[in-house]
Simulated assay, not measured.
Amino acid sequence: MTEFKQVATLDDVAPGTMYRVELDGKRILLANADGTIYACDEMCTHEDFSLALGALQGDCLKCSLHGSRFDLKTGRPLDEPADEDLAVYPVKVEGNKIFVALD
């Protein structure tokens, strides 16, 4: 059974912004793309670099180090040099609370 844990509130992640959290020792990045909340690993799969320093472009996340973009729905890299999927996690929003599951 999927276990969701509260990690933030909608007040923490305004539309067009990102917010870093830690869940069970794992660094997770929340992204609010036009009102939809996504959760993924915080570190780029190409090189250890924080994606929180990147930029949201629609429902994609762009790493500011080498320019690779990742689809926030699937984690798939859309540009080189990244060629490994970014881990994405299930999200649910209840009222103002954001919950993430790591499985």
Score class of each variant (00 low, 15 high):
F4A: 00
V7M: 07
V7I: 08
T9L: 03
L10R: 11
A14N: 06
P15A: 08
P15G: 08
G16S: 10
M18A: 07
Y19K: 15
Y19S: 10
G25A: 08
G25C: 04
R27G: 00
L30M: 12
L30P: 01
A31R: 12
N32V: 12
N32W: 10
A33T: 10
A33H: 08
A33F: 07
A33W: 06
D34N: 15
G35W: 13
T36V: 15
T36I: 15
I37H: 05
I37S: 06
Y38D: 09
E42R: 07
E42I: 01
C44E: 07
C44H: 01
F49S: 12
S50G: 14
L53F: 14
G54M: 08
A55H: 11
Q57W: 00
L61H: 05
C63P: 03
C63V: 07
S64A: 15
H66G: 13
G67N: 06
R69E: 15
D71Q: 09
L72M: 09
G75I: 06
P77I: 02
L78Q: 15
L78A: 11
L78W: 04
A82P: 07
D85V: 01
P90T: 07
V93T: 11
V93H: 03
V93N: 10
N96S: 14
K97Y: 01
F99G: 01
F99N: 05
